[in-house]
């Protein structure tokens, strides 16, 4: 179960990362197209921001699990482990509530975007599939956050600190130079 879960989250992250890479490439190509050939890629403005939005929210789902949100970290220096555990549960529950309400409202936004017929600027691609993908990412975030709360409550090593800013652990840093 745990393994399957980890694998799913990794897969989500890979997809989000590829989308992110694709957006980078899109902007570079559009800039080249404009300077080199006076033909920017149509809708590069809308497509890049919308696809990046999808990547960000799918990344948000993985953050819900990995605890790489930016936080103030004084409590672990002050309180005992059991108290710290309950503080963690409190914090993650608020994250869960926020994410859930956001997902609920985003579903409404998806419905209203679908009904409104709003499109991109140049190619007139409907916007609703992007909003739907973003909503899906939020649903993913609810699941990952819930899973994390269960882990905090049940595991003794709940306070293992992953590097909360760069998101990378020491062992991932390359030493080949």
């Amino acid at each position: 179960m745990n393994k399957l879960f980890d694998k799913t989250i990794s897969a989500i992250e890979v997809v989000a990362a590829i989308l992110f890479g694709a957006v980078t490439l899109l902007i570079v190509l559009s800039a080249i197209g404009r300077y080199g050939f006076a033909t920017p890629i149509p809708d590069s403005f809308d497509l890049s921001r919308l696809v990046l939005g999808v990547a960000i929210v799918w990344g948000f789902a993985s953050l819900g699990f990995r605890d790489s949100h930016i936080k103030v970290s004084i409590t672990s220096h002050i309180f005992s482990k059991p108290v710290t555990r309950w503080i963690e549960v409190f914090a993650w529950t608020l994250l869960l509530i926020f994410t859930s309400v956001l997902a609920w409202k985003m579903f409404g936004k998806f419905l209203s975007t679908h009904a409104s017929g709003e499109t991109t600027f140049d190619l007139r691609i409907p916007l609703w599939p992007f909003v739907f993908a973003i909503w899906l990412g939020l649903v993913g975030a609810i699941i990952t956050t819930l899973y994390r709360i269960i882990q905090i409550m049940t595991r003794s090593d709940f306070c293992i600190i992953e590097n909360s800013i760069t998101g990378s652990r020491d062992d991932e840093v390359q030493n080949d130079v």
Binding site: A17, G59, G167
Partner: peptide, 12 residues
């Protein structure tokens, strides 16, 4: 890409 995305999401 994954690492940069994580940092970006935290900022977003």
């Amino acid at each position: 890409l994954i690492e940069a995305l994580r940092t970006s999401v935290a900022i977003y």
